[in-house]
C-alpha cells in the first residue's frame, strides 16, 4: 500500500481564512451540507479541529466540538473525520485521530464519543482499534438513510498518572 516513499503528512489548524478548504472536503466526503453552527463550533474548538496535508495538499480533516457536561467536566464529540478517497490507507486518518486523543489526554478530558451508522463495520472496527466501544444504540436516529439506527461509540481516557 501507499507510495513506498516518505511523503510528509502535516496538520494545520482551521481559521476563517482557510475555512473553505474544510467546506470543500466536507462537500465531497459527506452527503450533508453542514450549517453555520457546525463551522462556528469548528472555529471555537481550536486545536481539536485539524486539516491534514499530504505533501502540501489538503486531503482530510477531523472536526470536534467541546461539550460541557453537568458538573463542569468537558467531553469531546467528533463531528466529522474524513480523508479523500485517493489518499486513504496512508495513515492520515490515524494521524488525525491520534492528534485528538493526545490532546484529550494532555488536557485531562476523560470522554470522547461519536455516532456511527449501525451497518458501517469498517468505521466501527477502525475506532475499536483505538479503544472505542459501542456504548449505546439509538433507534431511528437518521431520517433519510437506511438503516436509520446508529451506535454511540465512546472511549474513556484515563487521566495521565501523576508520577510519584
Amino acid at each position: 500500500m501507499g507510495a513506498g516513499r516518505a511523503v510528509s503528512i502535516s496538520l494545520d489548524g482551521v481559521r476563517d481564512k482557510n475555512l473553505m478548504q474544510l467546506k470543500k472536503l466536507n462537500s465531497v466526503l459527506f452527503p450533508v451540507r453542514y450549517n453555520d453552527k457546525y463551522y462556528a463550533d469548528v472555529l471555537a474548538s481550536g486545536e481539536f479541529t485539524k486539516l491534514a496535508y499530504y505533501s502540501d495538499i489538503c486531503v482530510g480533516s477531523i472536526a470536534c466540538r467541546l461539550e460541557k457536561k453537568e458538573g463542569g467536566s468537558v467531553r469531546v464529540y467528533i463531528m466529522t473525520l474524513g480523508v479523500l478517497a485517493p489518499y486513504r490507507g496512508l495513515g492520515i486518518g490515524t494521524t488525525l485521530l491520534n492528534h485528538v486523543l493526545d490532546l484529550c489526554s494532555k488536557q485531562s478530558i476523560g470522554e470522547i464519543y461519536l455516532h456511527v451508522q449501525t451497518n458501517n463495520e469498517d468505521a466501527i472496527s477502525f475506532y475499536k482499534k483505538f479503544g472505542f466501544e459501542i456504548t449505546e444504540t439509538i433507534q431511528n436516529y437518521y431520517t433519510n438513510i437506511t438503516p436509520p439506527d446508529c451506535y454511540v461509540v465512546t472511549k474513556y481516557i484515563d487521566p495521565p498518572q501523576p508520577k510519584k
Partner: peptide, 20 residues
C-alpha cells in the same frame, strides 16, 4: 453559503465514517 440546515443535519454526522 450552504443550504440552511433542516435541523437534522447533525444527526447525519455519523455518515463520516463511510469516508474512512
Amino acid at each position: 453559503e450552504f443550504v440552511p440546515s433542516n435541523g437534522k443535519v447533525e444527526k447525519l454526522d455519523a455518515m463520516k465514517n463511510l469516508a474512512i
